[in-house]
Design a binder for these strands. Structure first.
Lengths: 129, 129
DNA sequence: GCAACATATTCGTCAAAGCGTATAAGTGAG
DNA sequence: CTCACTTATACGCTTTGACGAATATGTTGC
């Protein structure tokens, strides 16, 4: 029982698309999202809540931090469209720029005052072992 | 230069999804849309205008009548998502019911007072030759 | 317990969008 | 030109949603 209207409403906002783009395949901490998008923390939080209500993302608590990840809808059709959308975003220059900034931030979090003690995304942690 | 936000906003409304579902692969007259959805004519017209602004449909005038059809966006990613969305809608019971009512209305437009002289969809015209 | 930190929610305001009613615009028939 | 018909738009109203600022909630360490 999936609701297409709610699903597409969730995708109909630039900030939310940018968030989904940054989550991509991997879980990511809210503090990175705030830092990369350069938008107020409450704004990011509200959009994440919207995405969660729409069933597009899930959250996991890790001490003080919250990690968000994309969750593929049980509905096959919705899942396929979501995957397609992520691939589509991948081709946009501004979305590529966001991901590029994320990589940089992960490599040297000390440069970003707000990220000095932030937990790295899983993929970066694996790479740096 | 396609705008994902606008595109998804266009898909984020139940009435518009129903309209797209009815247009499917074929052009269709506004009067049928009004009749099948059982919604006020101005409402339908407004949603069609929204879809047109978003670049998802195009209109063709035919005397007093206006025929709308889905137009695949030039952007490859958007086109693919739109196609998948239509296929997804195809699986919904309520959407199937809409299409079923459309077929019935086309077969016996006389039953629908408002459709007595309405132009048939192209595919029905071909079948009835 | 408290203080510091990360995140979520509330509040007030504003713009966007949905709706029904009424009306305008475009077309064809007479 | 006028009337009948189809579709589009304007108007007023209500709801939704986006935003920043302030505040609340939840966690860790002391």
């Amino acid at each position: 029982m999936f609701n297409p209207e709610l699903f597409f409403k969730a995708l109909g906002d630039r900030t939310r698309l940018r968030l989904l783009n940054l989550m991509g395949e991997q879980e990511i901490c809210v503090c990175y999202l705030v830092e990369i998008l350069e938008q107020g923390q409450p704004k990011i939080s509200r959009h994440l809540a919207y995405l969660r209500r729409a069933g597009v993302v899930e959250a996991r608590r890790d001490g003080k931090w919250m990690h968000y990840r994309i969750v593929m809808p049980a509905d096959k059709g919705a899942a396929q469209i979501l995957r397609q959308t992520l691939a589509w975003l991948n081709e946009e220059r501004s979305m590529q720029a966001d991901r590029s900034r994320l990589s940089k931030a992960c490599c040297s979090p000390a440069k970003y005052v707000a990220l000095q003690s932030a937990p790295l995304p899983v993929s970066v942690m694996l790479e740096s072992r």
